[in-house]
Design a binder for these strands. Sequence first.
DNA 1: TGGCATAATGTACGCGTGTACATTATTGAT
DNA 2: ATCAATAATGTACACGCGTACATTATGCCA
Lengths: 396, 396
Amino acid sequence: MATRKEVAELAGVSEATVSRVMNGVGPMKEETRRRVADAAARLGYQLNALASGFAKGRSGNIGVVLPHVPKVRMFSTYYFSEILSGIGDALHQAGYGLLLLYRNPRERYDYVSLYRTRRVDACLILGASSLPEEQASVHALADAGLPACIVDQRFEPRGRDIPFVGADHRAGAYAAARHMLDTGRRSLGFLNGSPHYSNSADRYDGYLAALADAGLAPDPDLLFEGNYSRTSGYEAAGAIADRLDRLDGLMCANDRMAIGAIQGLRERGIDVPDRLPVIGYDNADASSLTDPPLTTVEVPFYEMGRLAAETALGMLSGDAGEDGPAAALQGGPAAASQSGHGGSALPDDAAGAGSPDNLEDIAPPDGPAAVSSPGGAARTTGGLLLPTRLIIRRSC
Amino acid sequence: MATRKEVAELAGVSEATVSRVMNGVGPMKEETRRRVADAAARLGYQLNALASGFAKGRSGNIGVVLPHVPKVRMFSTYYFSEILSGIGDALHQAGYGLLLLYRNPRERYDYVSLYRTRRVDACLILGASSLPEEQASVHALADAGLPACIVDQRFEPRGRDIPFVGADHRAGAYAAARHMLDTGRRSLGFLNGSPHYSNSADRYDGYLAALADAGLAPDPDLLFEGNYSRTSGYEAAGAIADRLDRLDGLMCANDRMAIGAIQGLRERGIDVPDRLPVIGYDNADASSLTDPPLTTVEVPFYEMGRLAAETALGMLSGDAGEDGPAAALQGGPAAASQSGHGGSALPDDAAGAGSPDNLEDIAPPDGPAAVSSPGGAARTTGGLLLPTRLIIRRSC
DNA sequence: TGGCATAATGTACGCGTGTACATTATTGAT
DNA sequence: ATCAATAATGTACACGCGTACATTATGCCA
């Protein structure tokens, strides 16, 4: 392992000069720069990231926190892998490392220690819910005023808050419900996810808004609840079948529950879409594999990850970022809509089973103080909401 | 941020004593230990992992390398998320961090720099293939003699080699083919994956062995090739349909291709399983969601990740580990078969669609010098092969 | 009580870097 | 040619910890 001292000797300069060359700081003669670079190359010298981080008091790593319960596959892997991919690209581009952290949603998680021990410089929190332990953990992090970003989950505003980046699920659910209503449904059921997620509430809002716009009153008996797992959708099929005489359409808060519900309905001899049209949400991988392929709402998860990472990084590099995640949208080197993944590009093999249809023009009447911004994302207090898109297939 | 000095002063001891208490090294009076612990607690002091790692020359992080090509979802997310989960649990238990690294499979990747810059103490390589750039990168890592472990991919032995942990895909494919043959198929096609993966070759071996045991000769015209993506299976359906008159069964090297193939076949009016029974491989999430549910081979991905992590950690903590990954099996605090995930436990909602059937007794005649070991895993030169299990559903 | 082995603690330094500050070289204007 | 401003480089130290080694306390046996 070559060290800075050896490079300095070989190049005939001081260690400080080597340091400056390696970091590209301060003015220096081009010839000196080259001599040092050559010496470093000849010795195979590279900065010791550990020592460098130690001297700067920064690890150079961003913690990405995922929920994880042993033996239970609670969440869609599609969801996380897309977001992670976006995060990974953004962090790599900025020269940061991605430290993957698993958290048990039912236990208190000490975010602050991660910073105190310098394991991470910032955190991105994925799959958070408002379970008490979880909320308390996040509040402690917010109170400490540490750089972080919450992905796709909003907490109730309080003094200091952590910025979030999510998707406009209210608009997405509105578009889904609207599609059902526009195609003649009058009595639309809704299989929602756990109320611990702000997602669920947002989707419910969109559902209600679409009903209201169609002059329909919501029927509490047509509201079902699962926990976003396929099994919970499968199990909900019983209750749904019981209300079948009053239903002419079913909307689900995610694809996995929709798939489970379709399975359960089919086992009861209820055909989808002939007897009961169903619409999902997420545009997960599996949604195009099912029979029938699932009409669903595409969510820009990759972009979400990217923006969340850029938001957190923005809080690190000055700005004393009280601006929230919108700053990343405007100032980032690669803004959301230009990064080449997501947006209008179809993910891998999503095509071929139904014609995607951009229905951005069908917007919900009034979001939560949302204002559309240049990237197509809406900015709300303390957060950013990315636009979603309806994908029409054959299930409704 | 409290520092060691303040703790030492508050406790009335030297900094060295604080250090010893925090790390639990050397003999010390219980009262001293308590005094220091109290002082640390009162000041909210925690070890600075960065400084500690710097002093020890170790980052405390293990790099986990994943293939990643922008805009292309090349690999099953199920596969990686299961393996990652196993890795995460093992590393967390050992107090190590998980640094997620994305690699472009088509470019050379400088593993060695990761160590030289002290970003990681060891690496776990996932989704590796024998593409030239990739192979060269791995060889350089092996030549440097650095601690690492390759997951589910074997490279040809050479001087110094990196240990690997994988699954016995030869036996798995044998069981799958055998199941087909035992249920009356005589003319079994095989849709294999890219030959850049040792997986593919192993599965092909198992397929051939089962044919041979049934007294059948392989028909080269019934061998198809995809790239493990659903799309490639979908596209292969054309060639498969062309040979339909000579086929009475189709075996696929993974579930995604099987699902794609079934879709393609159905579009050509070929019913599965009535006209052509199909069997998959992996027991991915989606395999139980399809119509018909897919008979497949379960692979203990979680265990695979756990064992790989334990193998790499074993190379760190002495043993000058020339023993290969088997050491982790015997010596680890939680051996494979006891860790509670995988093994006989069904992953989440895999049940309910067909009766799983353990066919471990149907073993291939002769593996590549494989010897079964206490954990049920076979140990081969330089690597460990975990057992697979046939899961019978309705697609064949 | 003395001596010795061992436990328990303190002292001192190195780990490799970033950077504030001091110093020297260079340039340009007068 | 002189001086000042600025560029370019060197010097010196802090960052927080682990640990080899020195030192002191303790217990045990004769």
